[in-house]
Design a protein around this nucleic acid. Structure first.
Length: 345
DNA sequence: AATTCGGGGAA
DNA sequence: TTCCCAGAATT
C-alpha cells in the first residue's frame, strides 16, 4: 500500500476527539488554527474554549476591544497572533460581508493567515485539495522519504510543499491533512517515535537507514540576547500603581507593564536612582526597595530577560494611577502576571 | 535569506 | 538543559 492510504487508515484508528474537528464552520476552524500555531494542543485547548465562549461569532470578535482580545490571549505567547486575529475578524466583517472566504488564495489575504493556515481552513472546511505542511508534516515526510534538505531553508520549504502535494489524497483531503499531522504528533513523534509499531515501517527510509533521530534537518540555531529589566512598581497611599502599555516594535506589543528602565547590566539601587529621576511621571519617593534579590530570568525564544522589580513607595497621590486590585483586568506578559500574583501589599 | 516574534511541556 | 510545538510577518 502507498503512503496516503496508510495515513488515512492510521488516522481513522487513532485520531483524538478535538472540538474543532467536530465542525466545518470556518470561524471556529480558523480560530483553532491561529491558536495552535507553534502551540501544543494541550496548551491551546482552554484558550479555544474561552474564545468561542467570549466570541461565538466573527462579529462578536470584530466588535470587541483589542484589550479584551489580548486579555483572553494572555499567557499563550506570540501576541501578534491575537492582534492579527482581531484585525482579520474585522476584515471578514468589513471586506467579506461577514462570511469567511472559501479558497486558499482568498483566505491567505487575511492577516495572520499564511500558507499553512490557509491550506488548513480551505481543506478542512471546503475540501480544497491543498496540502498542509506544518512541523508534523515536515517530520513525517522527511523521515519516510529520507529527505535531508533543511526544512527551514527556502529550498526545503518549496521541496516539502511539492512533495506533500504529490503524495496527498485529493479526494479525502480533510481527513488526510488532519491525519498526517496527527500521525506526526502521536506516532512519528520528534523524540523516540515508536517505529516498532508503525504502519509505515516497511517503507520508511529513515527507519531503514537508521536516520530517524537525525531527521528532519533544521538549520540556523537561535542565538539568545540577554536584557536587563528594572520594573518600577509604584505604590501610593491609596494603593494606586502605574501601568504603561508597550508600544512600537519588539516583544509584547500593546500589553501592559510597570514603568520600565532597561539597562546594559544588573543595577544596584544607587545606580538606578538617577535613572528614575529622568523618568517622567515618577513623583518624589518615600522609599525604594528591591523586591527580588536575585534577578528573575524570564526566558523567551530569543531573549533572556534578567528582571528586577523595584518597589517605589510615595506619599504623593498617583493621579493617573490604577487601583492595585484592578490591574488584573489588564493584559500583561506572564512575567508581570507572575509577579503580581506573588506580591502582597 | 535570516530574524523575530512566547510560553510551556517532555525527555 | 535542549527541543519543538497544527507558523507568520518583518527585516
Amino acid at each position: 500500500m502507498i503512503f496516503a492510504p496508510k495515513i488515512l487508515n492510521w488516522y481513522r484508528e487513532h485520531q483524538r476527539e478535538l472540538p474543532w474537528r467536530e465542525t466545518r464552520e470556518p470561524y471556529k476552524v480558523w480560530l483553532s488554527e491561529i491558536i495552535l500555531q507553534q502551540t501544543r494542543v494541550a496548551q491551546g485547548m482552554p484558550y479555544y474554549y474561552s474564545f468561542v465562549e467570549a466570541f461565538p461569532t466573527v462579529f462578536d470578535l470584530a466588535n470587541a476591544p483589542e484589550e479584551q482580545v489580548l486579555k483572553l490571549w494572555q499567557g499563550l505567547g506570540y501576541y501578534s497572533r491575537a492582534r492579527n486575529l482581531h484585525a482579520a475578524a474585522k476584515m471578514v466583517v468589513n471586506d467579506f460581508n461577514g462570511e469567511f472566504p472559501k479558497t486558499y488564495k482568498a483566505l491567505k489575504s487575511l492577516k495572520g493567515v499564511g500558507d499553512y493556515t490557509a491550506s488548513a481552513i480551505a481543506s478542512f472546511c471546503f475540501d480544497e485539495p491543498e496540502p498542509v505542511v506544518d512541523g508534523n508534516v515536515y517530520r513525517v515526510l522527511s523521515r519516510y522519504f529520507g529527505v535531508d534538505i533543511p526544512i527551514n531553508s527556502t529550498q526545503g520549504i518549496k521541496y516539502f510543499k511539492e512533495l506533500a502535494r504529490e503524495v496527498m489524497d485529493e479526494r479525502n483531503i480533510r481527513d488526510y491533512n488532519q491525519g498526517i499531522m496527527e500521525f506526526g504528533a502521536i506516532q512519528c513523534a520528534p523524540k523516540k517515535p515508536y517505529c516498532l509499531l508503525c504502519p509505515l515501517q516497511d517503507s520508511c527510509v529513515a527507519l531503514k537507514e537508521n536516520k530517524v533521530d537525525s531527521l528532519p534537518v533544521k538549520q540556523n540555531k537561535t542565538k539568545v540576547r540577554n536584557r536587563y529589566f528594572n520594573y518600577l512598581v509604584l505604590l501610593d497611599q491609596n494603593e494606586n500603581t502605574i501601568l504603561e502599555q508597550r508600544r512600537g516594535k519588539g516583544i509584547w506589543q500593546n500589553l501592559y507593564q510597570f514603568p520600565l528602565i532597561e539597562s546594559e547590566k544588573k543595577l544596584q539601587a544607587e545606580a538606578l536612582k538617577p535613572l528614575i529621576k529622568e523618568k517622567e511621571d515618577v513623583p518624589e519617593l518615600e522609599s525604594l526597595s528591591l523586591y527580588n534579590n536575585e534577578p528573575i530570568v524570564h526566558k523567551l525564544s530569543h531573549q533572556h530577560l534578567h528582571t528586577q522589580f523595584w518597589i517605589l513607595k510615595t506619599s504623593h497621590i498617583l493621579e493617573q494611577g490604577t487601583q492595585w486590585n484592578e490591574i488584573g483586568n489588564f493584559p500583561v506578559p506572564v512575567l508581570i502576571a507572575d509577579f503580581i500574583k506573588t506580591l502582597k501589599i
